[in-house]
């Protein structure tokens, strides 16, 4: 379970560029919840993710993961149990290392952390990697000895997803992780995401700019604006929600229309 208790963060305080990216943000995400997040540019979606991963320490508030206060735990210590995928597929894997080496690193780190520095991959682990790659259905299982730099963006993102979930994370953060992929590949990676999250019952937050997707995936939808959560729907209310209804809800709660072209355009199809 993830808890954010009135978390705030201001960038460049005391300068002309001062920007309060998140304001007294509170969120409780129970175990196994899969929430999608939409919001205009600069709404604080990525800032919220970076606050959770510890990319920076927040100015105010408290962050708890599974009851443990992680507000001031350094990033590299938290990331052992937080999976984080970015929009840029190049960010999550090491290009000059092979697929197998990338998987090995992710697997060993998540399963043993900083203990067992000299551990190596075993034959049975390799078997596991092979099976996991096979489920991606991208032919990667036969290319385990190839450097990751040779893969396409979609393949790299699928691999990153696998690396993040090979050992079940306490929370998985997906920051528009399919936005930079071509539609067919994005579809594939999304289906894979849904499958893995469901199978392992991973607590998950997913930022998307696609409103249909925001309503179709997961069990909860959160709308953000100017560093705040402006709508949070789940259950019956969400089941009956349409894209137009979502826009209407946004207008009602914020007082003005949503200003993200990408989001608005995605509502058309």
């Amino acid at each position: 379970m993830l808890e954010l208790k009135s978390v705030s963060k201001t960038f460049h305080p005391g300068t002309v560029n001062e920007k309060q990216a998140i304001k007294k943000l509170s969120l409780i995400l129970p175990e196994g919840d899969f929430a999608t997040i939409i919001g205009s540019n600069g709404a604080g979606k990525s800032t919220m993710f970076n606050a959770i991963t510890g990319n920076f320490f927040v100015d105010e508030g408290e962050i708890c993961l599974d009851g443990e206060d992680i507000t001031f735990v350094p990033e590299y210590k938290r990331s052992k149990y937080i999976g984080h995928l970015f929009q840029d597929p190049l960010l999550g894997t090491a290009p000059h290392m092979t697929i197998e080496e990338n998987l090995t690193l992710a697997y060993l780190r998540a399963s043993s952390g900083n203990k067992g520095l000299f551990r190596m991959v075993k034959a049975e682990d390799r078997e596991r990697f092979w099976k996991a790659l096979k489920t991606l259905d991208m032919g990667l299982e036969d290319r385990m000895k190839q450097p990751v730099g040779l893969l396409s963006g979609g393949q790299r993102q699928a691999l990153t997803l696998l690396m993040a979930t090979m050992v079940r994370p306490k929370i998985l953060l997906l920051d528009e992780h399919t936005a930079a992929l071509d539609p067919a590949t994005a579809e594939k990676v999304l289906a894979q995401t849904e499958k893995i999250v469901k199978e392992q019952q991973i607590t998950c937050l997913m930022v998307t700019h696609n409103m249909n997707q925001a309503l179709a995936m997961g069990n909860r939808t959160i709308m953000m604006d100017s560093g705040r959560i402006v709508a949070d729907i789940s259950g019956k209310e969400r089941e009956n929600m349409t894209v137009d209804g979502l826009l209407e809800l946004f207008r009602k709660n914020v007082g003005e229309g949503l200003d993200n072209d990408r989001i608005l355009l995605s509502g058309l199809n």
């Binding site: 990319n55 590299y76 960010l91 090995t104 690193l105 992710a106 060993l108 780190r109």
Partner: peptide
């Protein structure tokens, strides 16, 4: 041998992709 152990792989990743390292549990 060393460069294929967990520490060795972590060292290689540190030089190969700093942003990956930030998001994984490696302390650069």
């Amino acid at each position: 041998w060393f460069l294929n152990t967990m520490l060795g792989l972590s060292i290689r990743a540190t030089g190969d992709n700093p942003s990956m390292v930030r998001a994984s549990s490696i302390n650069p």
